[in-house]
């Protein structure tokens, strides 16, 4: 299984952001991580990306322990954060070239061109981040994540700042990558997107996993929702609203 999280706990001083969280994501799966603000979604993704060290617990990427062999594990994953963080003095093309060098991508030119076309970044290759809109910068971050063929894709609010066409293309891109065999973990507040794209949903609240399954499975559980509920109704019910 490409993503395995076991008893992940992360604290910030006295505050526990994620508490004893365990789950896995298989190849070809798109798992939606949803929950109210402060539920621990971003902390989970950042721990999985190797940005935050877990206070307790284990994370494995493609069977590689992230804490024991971080370099090998990171080589296999791509994290696309909600806030597009770019190097202010590198152009779009230079960002892609940098990632290609970091991940030792051979067919950089072809892949770069394909992504520039796919994400509609044509004509912006020589632009600095300061000259791009927020949506464009988000696209550059996503291009940097997708230029390598990572087996694990982590998206934190991937649609923030994108226009309707961009949103549609991004949905198609995520599904295509999963079909190609990637394990995708996606955090979003856009429940209709999660319902439409994800094969499974994990609902978090106050650092805990409170539900895990397909939308149909969750809807069929009497303790979670009334029969035939959609994801939004399930979400509101399990989070106590």
């Amino acid at each position: 299984m490409p993503i395995v999280i076991e008893q992940l706990t992360r604290t910030f001083g006295p505050f526990t952001a994620v508490d004893d969280l365990s789950f896995g994501v298989d190849s070809g799966e798109i798992v939606g991580l949803i929950g109210p603000n402060g539920a621990g979604k971003t902390t989970t993704l950042r721990a999985l990306a190797g940005i935050l060290r877990p206070t307790r617990g284990r994370i494995r990427v493609d069977e590689i322990d992230l804490l024991e062999r971080p370099i090998d594990a990171k080589r296999r994953l791509a994290f696309m954060p909600d806030e597009p963080r770019l190097f202010e003095y590198l152009t779009v093309e230079e960002h892609l070239r940098l990632i290609a060098r970091l991940y030792e991508i051979d067919d950089f030119a072809a892949r770069s061109q394909a992504l520039v076309d796919e994400l509609e970044l044509k004509g912006k290759e020589r632009a600095l981040p300061g000259e791009l809109s927020r949506g464009m910068r988000q696209k550059v971050v996503i291009a940097c994540g997708l230029i390598r063929r990572a087996s694990v894709l982590l998206f934190d609010e991937p649609l923030t700042g994108l226009d309707p066409i961009g949103i549609r293309r991004m949905r198609e891109t995520i599904v295509a990558r999963a079909r190609a065999g990637a394990a995708v973990l996606l955090s979003s507040h856009l429940l209709h997107l999660v319902e439409e794209v994800c094969t499974r949903v994990i609902i978090m609240d106050h650092g805990h996993k409170i539900a895990d399954g397909t939308v149909a499975e969750l809807a069929s559980r009497a303790d979670l929702a009334a029969a035939g509920s959609n994801l939004e109704q399930i979400f509101l019910r399990v989070t106590g609203h």
Partner: peptide, 12 residues
């Protein structure tokens, strides 16, 4: 200021 990006890179 870019540490969150650097930390995800597979480098020594």
């Amino acid at each position: 200021k870019n540490i969150e990006v650097l930390k995800t890179w597979p480098v020594s």
